[in-house]
């Protein structure tokens, strides 16, 4: 089955992105396809390469980049939301790309299920 994921909250502040990540891992392990992960609202902050968590904490940004690399995931950051919050190509972590909101609607059309993680 094809899933699309919408993440509306940033890293560390809220558990939403952790839950979304573990959901994606479980879905991939079951042989499902993650059609796209779309980052919106403060969720765009999940893509900042400037994030530096303490050594003993999970690295949420790198974790997404790694999952994207392993599974060829399409991690899309909303351009309007990103520019509002200081996310640009120059500080975008590997595996993410910045694009328009149409990518969210398109993912909703193309996927069998869209699941939202937010606050």
């Amino acid at each position: 089955m094809k899933f699309a994921i919408l993440i509306n909250e940033g890293p560390y502040q809220h558990q939403a992105t952790d839950t979304a990540f573990l959901f994606c891992k479980a879905a991939l392990a079951k042989g499902h396809e993650i059609r796209r992960v779309f980052f919106y609202h403060d969720g765009v902050n999940n893509s900042s390469s400037l994030t530096e968590p303490p050594q003993d904490d999970r690295n949420i940004v790198q974790r997404w980049s790694k999952l994207a690399e392993e599974h060829k995931l399409d991690l899309v950051v909303c351009v309007a939301a990103a520019l509002r919050r200081g996310i640009k190509d120059e500080n975008l972590a590997p595996g993410f790309r910045i694009s328009g909101l149409g990518q969210l609607v398109e993912a909703g059309i193309e996927a069998d299920r869209l699941v939202t993680f937010g606050d």
Binding site: N8, Y40, L101, L104, V105, I109
Partner: peptide, 19 residues
Amino acid sequence: TIYALESLEVVLISAAFDQ
């Protein structure tokens, strides 16, 4: 919070997809 405004932005975009 910004949710209402950014929700409206998605709604406007969705119109272009004839859904």
